[in-house]
């Protein structure tokens, strides 16, 4: 198992956001995290990475309990995180964003080189000397994903990767995510684009008010659309 969380209870002050969430991602598996706004999807991701500390529950990465580790140490266990909002640095160029993040993955694996990332996102190659914040929304998202790939991750977490993007750019991002999946990198995808997630994900998890109400394959959701209608409103 790549990542496993059990009984996660997370609070913001006195407000409980996650109520005993169990979550797992297998090696090479693509898991879609679905739910309406405010149901705890991003909080679950932040809880897995130690950005928000769960009050109860365990998180294991590669079988090791990471509950006591800082975020950077959890990330170093083979995870790449593309946050909501893309997380650009206004003092770094495209090239600097990519070079800064570069490191080998587990066992010295270096499948994703600088050149390969630029081949995957040719638009970035045209803007290497532009500051990250001077790119369009779509280009920033490509850079955020490219930067994540430069760490040669085993697990890629994408939080609202296509939010606010034009349909054409969104299609391009989904194409790349599919290509990443084919390379065997596991991923957790948080997104509102249910149609694409049903096609792309190996497993879908639906969160409602901080609880997992569905954890299963996309075929069941396609066969029983009332589940989506009830929990997501589609």
């Amino acid at each position: 198992m790549m990542l496993e969380a059990n009984g996660i209870h997370t609070f913001y002050g006195a407000a409980q956001v996650l109520h005993g969430v169990d979550f797992r991602v297998g090696k090479g598996e693509t898991v879609a995290l679905m739910g309406r706004n405010g149901m705890g999807k991003s909080t679950l991701v932040k809880s897995l990475l130690g950005i928000v500390r769960p009050r109860q529950g365990t998180v294991r990465v590669g079988g090791h309990d990471v509950g006591a580790l800082d975020t950077h140490a959890i990330i170093r266990r083979g995870i790449a995180y593309v946050p909501e909002g893309r997380g650009m640095f206004h003092n770094l160029t495209v090239r600097e964003h990519l070079v800064m993040a570069a490191r080998p993955g587990a066992g010295g694996r270096a499948d994703w080189s600088y050149d390969r990332v630029l081949r995957t996102f040719p638009r970035l190659a045209e803007r290497l000397d532009n500051l990250g914040t001077h790119l369009s929304g779509g280009e920033q998202q490509m850079l955020a994903i490219g930067r994540a790939l430069m760490t040669n991750p085993d697990l890629l977490i994408l939080d609202e990767a296509t939010e606010g993007l034009a349909p054409l750019v969104r299609r391009e991002i989904w194409r790349v995510i599919r290509a990443i999946k084919e390379t065997g990198i596991a991923s957790i995808i948080v997104d509102k684009n249910v149609g694409v997630l049903l096609d792309l994900a190996d497993r879908n998890i639906i969160l409602v008010k901080g609880k997992v109400v569905y954890d299963g394959g996309p075929d069941t959701l396609k066969a029983q659309p009332e589940i989506l209608e009830r929990h997501i409103g589609l």
């Binding site: 975020t71 950077h72 990330i75 790449a80 997380g87 640095f89 003092n91």
Partner: peptide, 23 residues
Amino acid sequence: PFGRVVGAIGINENRVQGLGFNP
């Protein structure tokens, strides 16, 4: 690379941590 990380810390320390660097 060291300087770039330090500069990025000055912009947003949490983001740097999210990239796997120990600020």
